[in-house]
């Protein structure tokens, strides 16, 4: 997978991008390639420079240094061509409240070529707003505005979808649906999704890769699926929840005693074997859990758990 990413041209490349306002550096020398066909996460604590970076990518704020290419076109020099490949929500999706949801979508449809009535209806169906689309936006809940925001971003079938904190204000069901249709977009339409968040657990479920940013600097890029794969082959910390931990420890001969069980390093096959041995020796096994480090642990480790600077 990583080999493929190197061969395929990135959908977006940030090349040494910096943003300074006065003496304050918000983003500093950020270099990042976003490979096509992925859900790519952009993770960082509040104030790390996520939104600033996204604003530069969509041309809302100027780039102090460096350049950003989208589908090979510079946002600085060929804005109109570059942005034609992008659909985005920057922070909260604000719509014209005095228009209906449908009229709002018509506004954006008129600004691009080739978005007809069928496409508008298709997108409305995709985000599940059929019932309320002809109501004024001022009557919408935050979650519905979020859906309308996604709809306007998808209208022109962009190659790159940029979503800034898209789960803000969504209920658990909405978050789940968003996750599902981002995944579907990625697979069915080949859309690349660039999504920022400070919610680590959310990113873990949604993304193929994440870039971690802190204090305006890129800290790390991780491939989450690769992490998942490695669990299968290498040994990981596993907790055996048993009725007699002392006896289990003696039987296996290694591991650490913990309240309610023992913890030891074991591979996938080994775990099955150990379980059989424990059961055969008359020890009751209530549960087996891998104690893999979550992204949250890794994130806190990488960013050193620092606060907003």
């Amino acid at each position: 997978m990583s080999n493929m990413a190197e061969v395929v041209k990135p959908v977006a490349s940030l090349m040494g991008v910096s943003k300074t306002i006065g003496s304050k550096t918000l983003v500093s020398d950020l270099t990042l390639d976003i490979p096509p066909g992925q859900v790519f996460g952009f993770l960082g604590p509040n104030g790390a420079g996520k939104t600033t970076t996204i604003r530069m990518m969509v041309g809302l704020i100027s780039i102090s240094k460096g350049d950003i290419l989208i589908c090979g076109r510079s946002v600085k020099d060929h804005f109109e061509e570059a942005i034609a490949n992008v659909g985005a929500i920057v922070e909260n999706p604000e719509m014209y409240k005095f228009l209906t949801g449908y009229q709002n979508l018509r506004q954006y449809a008129r600004m691009v070529r080739g978005v007809g009535k069928e496409r508008i209806d298709e997108v409305i169906k995709l985000v599940g707003l059929e019932q309320r689309i002809h109501d004024k936006v001022k009557t919408y809940s935050l979650g519905m505005r979020q859906r309308l925001g996604v709809a306007q971003a998808l209208l022109h079938r962009p190659k790159l979808l940029i979503l800034d904190e898209p789960t803000n204000g969504l209920d658990p069901q909405g978050i789940r649906e968003l996750r599902d249709y981002l995944r579907r977009l990625c697979i069915e339409e080949g859309t690349t999704v660039f999504v920022s968040s400070h919610l680590l657990s959310e990113m873990e479920l949604m993304c193929d890769s994440v870039a971690i940013i802190q204090n305006g600097k890129l800290v790390d890029v991780k491939q989450l699926k690769a992490v998942g794969d490695s669990i299968a082959v290498s040994s990981v910390e596993t907790l055996f929840d048993v009725d007699n931990p002392q006896a289990a420890l003696e039987l296996i001969g290694r591991g650490q005693l913990q309240p309610g069980g023992i913890v030891l390093e074991a591979g996938r096959e080994e775990v099955a074997g150990l379980n059989a041995r424990l059961v055969a020796a008359g020890i009751k096994v209530y549960g087996i859990r891998t104690l893999s480090r979550s992204l949250e642990d890794q994130f806190l480790e990488i960013t050193g758990g620092e606060g907003i600077v």
Partner: peptide
């Protein structure tokens, strides 16, 4: 003031 400027300026128009 509506915040809609963000969605207006990210269209393929100068």
């Amino acid at each position: 003031s509506w915040g809609t400027i963000k969605l207006l300026l990210i269209r393929p128009w100068s």
